Amino acid sequence: MGSSRIFAYLQLTRPANVVTAIADIWAGIAVAGAWAFISFDGSILGNEILFKLAWLSLSTIGLYAGGVAFNDVFDAELDAVERPERPIPSGRVSKSGAAWMSFILLVVGVIAAAQVNLISAAIALAVAILAVLYDYWGKHQNLIGPVNMGLCRSGNLLLGVSIAPSLLSSFWPLGLIPLIFVAAITMISRGEVHGKNRNALFGGLSMYLLVILVIAAMPIMHGTPIFEVIPFLALLCYMIFPPLIKAIRSQDPKLIGKSVKAAVISLIIVNASIASAFAGWQIGIIVLLLLPISLWLAKKFAVT
């Protein structure tokens, strides 16, 4: 397989987006309090947590990459009209080849999660099913579609929390944060091709504000100093609001696309904010280190 063929297959997986999914896992692990036990000193507990972090990170890579690649499989005919440069309609990747790659990636995601515990495997399987459901059916539904996509991210965050399964019963409501944020992105993205979706843009704006307010309240509820979270939220506002406001003013599909791209990448900042609220600013910085990687990949691969 030549380098151009490999690049085409990588395009299907949206590498910059995959990095944002890893941030979900790392934030979930912060919620579970497991970062405090990660070490490289050779201790049994430190190695165990480190291996679980690695398995869950691999799991989300498989789940996200497989899910978004299946999206192109199901959209092949539509992309032939609206996005003929995409790997499948351009002929650089066969539809059957893309489907097999997507399926294998999803299976890898579930198997990797199973190396942590059965609860993790069950959550990974649910995320895989939700992703395929969205690709095939959910994205065509005005109300259910954004919720469907948001549930994939919710499951991904809880997959990180599942490193300590007993905590899921306490922290499952945190899954509402990525659900609302991603539902907002999905709703806004409806105008990426044709524009003229002002109501959806304002709806997305209000949902972003809700997410920011909820995260800002977390330090108060969790007992973390609020100054540890504020810088991350300020960066989040800087990333998502200027391009969204421009899109609202112009209704230009290209500006809507830029707004969506900024929000997708900003999922890393959302996760860094959550991590800092539960585990301190140092862990928030660790999660935030994924941002430059995602931004670099976004220059080489499409985000939407």
Rank of each mutant, 00 (worst) to 15 (best):
232 F>H: 15
92 R>W: 00
130 L>I: 15
15 P>E: 07
95 K>W: 04
210 L>R: 11
289 L>F: 06
253 P>W: 15
49 I>G: 12
303 V>L: 01
201 L>V: 02
271 N>S: 08
271 N>T: 06
256 I>K: 04
140 H>I: 13
269 I>L: 07
78 L>Q: 03
197 N>I: 06
132 V>D: 04
296 W>T: 01
44 I>Q: 01
295 L>M: 13
220 I>H: 10
263 A>I: 09
158 L>F: 06
268 I>L: 09
274 I>N: 12
295 L>G: 10
75 D>M: 03
113 A>S: 14
285 I>C: 14
10 L>C: 00
289 L>I: 13
58 L>Y: 10
217 A>W: 13
6 I>H: 09
253 P>A: 06
119 I>E: 14
72 D>R: 11
269 I>N: 05
197 N>T: 13
29 I>D: 07
67 G>Y: 12
280 G>H: 03
114 A>N: 14
153 R>N: 10
238 Y>T: 09
57 S>V: 14
158 L>R: 00
209 L>D: 12
196 K>C: 02
173 P>D: 09
96 S>C: 15
73 V>G: 10
175 G>T: 06
173 P>C: 07
211 V>I: 02
298 A>H: 08
87 P>W: 07
112 A>L: 00
250 S>H: 13
127 V>S: 08
7 F>R: 06
239 M>C: 07
84 P>S: 15
181 F>E: 01
78 L>Y: 00
136 Y>P: 07
167 L>G: 11
180 I>T: 08
277 A>Y: 07
113 A>F: 03
226 I>R: 08
95 K>S: 05
303 V>M: 10
85 E>M: 05
70 F>Q: 02
81 V>R: 04
193 V>E: 00
7 F>N: 09
260 V>P: 12
58 L>P: 13
71 N>S: 05
